[in-house]
Write a protein that binds this DNA or RNA. Structure first.
Lengths: 208, 208, 208, 208
DNA sequence: GATGAATGAGGGTTCATTCAT
DNA sequence: AATGAATGAACCCTCATTCAT
């Protein structure tokens, strides 16, 4: 017997006036920032100032709400990436640096979205399993495009550039997820330190 | 008055015949692999083929059970590490290679323990707070010892060796966690590829 | 950090239509009549015809429910006493007579409330400790006021009036609790018999 | 479906050597002193130094054990009363005074038995309902015999002697149950105070 | 559209009782 | 006779979900 998916009307939610929509979005992401199970639908509706029924009218279930949020922030962030990518930066280290700056913007404008976004991975499979898979594919696609853009000729000839990119990627992820983000300047310094190492070790020596 | 810790008789559990003990251990770790809250004691006893009462006779509470498991796998793994460390290997890349082999063993012999072990950090935030802290200290100490052993003079002088070690560490973790482990030979090859990059890029050039 | 008291919304309960409110009140007091521990919340909701969740929505916990009931009956009864007291009767035997009539009313209209009310003291020791203390103080105050009203000069000079009042009190309580209450006239006769003894023996002789 | 009464072999228990028997008796009464439900069979066997199985071998169930204890102390105490009664004391006030002294003995020699004995009434219907009824009948019989012995001619002619005895009885009960028994001398003083009132008010004036 | 009172399955925990040894 | 590991029904409580208004 398959779990029946109840009615949901996300489109109606998207047609809401932006202020109300964001109030709900903020409340939900804030509550989900520590993982799926810890979030309480009661807390969400209370914080958003709407009724229980309305939340379920829009999203059908807690699970679908979570799925929606994951997709929403992902699209929102990806959107920013693409704008950046379209500016055609070919140096992958520079791209990661820009990415970090973008995150800074997100933190300032939508702190809860950022927390939530980080939490998705940190509390990964606390969430319904399906979710992770779907998102992973999407992120992989985005990341692939991200990589396709970058200029592999910058890398030393005696190493596997793809593996090198992989190393840079996981290091950046780890840095962003685990780092205490209270002091942003500190964070940028650390980040710069790592990027320097990569430039020194993985890139060809620049001859002047 | 502190939260009263109910009677628990872990020693009695340790005196169980190994087969039964492992059945319980497996069931519990399997159930906890997605985090503390998601795990159901009902599911554990059902899977282990014991009664609810017996589980609580041994461990007192879900929280104490979790604490025990965390410590158990940690000791189990640390044990292997220490044996290796005592062989006094100073090349950190060689140490990571050995570590990977050990983890591979763990995955093969106790897949659930391995999943659980990974989950401890991944789902850290939904576990009883105390646990994470205690373990973090211990692991930090173990890792520090691990690092203290290694010969930093192997690294290039123009990079921050600590950051370099960090990069190597997260890359190894990512590799072990994400890699599809069906084909062991394939895995070892990939692993070797990454270690080669690190040796080539982070270590001093060897002059012959 | 004190034991956290979970949300409770007793006001919402008080706003319920009287029939439903009394159905819950009756079920709860009936179930608690043999003490705190023996009462089962399952039995209460089943008897009241409501769901588990609703009971906890109103009262937060078994303990808070019990606390509410204790206060409720106490206020309910005290209310009646005070009306009587305000009529300013100074003869304590007359006051006990009135009290007995009031209790009789309570028994007829809310038998479970009466049983519960008696049980509070009888099974005091298995209730959450705080409760008993708070109520005891309040009841002591009410009883003190009750006694302060009464004219001690009616008592013989050669006996301790306070002890005499105590004797009258426990006798009345015993009478009301143990007497088979099927035949009200019979009960009143017995009661009158005892009051006569007290008047004859404890009061000064009336000279005409 | 009637609750099935499991096998019990109290006779075997009675045939135990006195030291072991008393160790069990003490442990059980001590644990039951706060009522039936609060007592834990685990605590009893631990305190008595016997196994769970043995306790159930002798008594069959917690309920039967409790029943046995109630009967046991009752018989033990009644036994003392009868010895006293056989000495043929006809003054009921004197009889109550002697009773109080007997209780003092019990307190000294078997403090737990005394606590348990008091608890039976204090925590009355916390226990299985049947118990109270059975005991009540027995106690009533004992009390009736107690009263039958007493010399009614001591009472004033203008009051109902039976009712007067009843008053004395409930006052004594209340005193014994509620009084803080830490200071025995204090208790005896209070007791004497009440007995004096009864003698002064209920008995005929003694002409010299 | 919008509400929030009401639901009940499921969770963690306890403990009297049983039974293989 | 004696043990104590093992059981499982029953307990208090939570919370995602529903539905009458």
């Amino acid at each position: 017997m398959e779990k029946q998916v109840k009615q949901a009307d996300v489109e109606k939610f998207m047609r809401l006036e932006q202020r109300k929509r964001n109030r709900i979005l903020n409340a939900a992401m804030k509550e989900f920032r520590y993982g799926y199970k810890k979030a309480s639908t009661d807390a969400i509706v209370k914080d958003a100032g709407i009724s229980k029924g309305l939340l379920y009218h829009y999203f059908g279930s807690k699970e679908q709400l979570y799925a929606f949020l994951v997709r929403y922030v992902n699209d929102f962030i990806t959107c920013g990436y693409f704008d950046m990518l379209n500016e055609g930066n070919a140096d992958i280290l520079e791209m990661f640096w820009q990415t970090a700056l973008l995150k800074k913007d997100l933190i300032d404008q939508h702190p809860h979205w950022y927390d939530f976004s980080n939490g998705i991975y940190v509390h990964s499979s606390d969430a319904p399993a399906v979710q992770a898979t779907l998102l992973a594919q999407e992120q992989q696609a985005a990341y692939d495009e991200f990589c396709a853009r970058c200029d592999l000729s910058l890398f030393r000839d005696d190493i596997d550039a793809e593996k090198a990119i992989s190393i840079i990627g996981v290091t950046m992820d780890d840095l962003i997820n685990s780092e205490c983000h209270d002091d942003y300047e500190q964070f940028l310094n650390t980040l710069r330190g790592y990027l320097d190492i990569f430039r020194t070790c993985f890139y060809k020596e620049v001859k002047d």
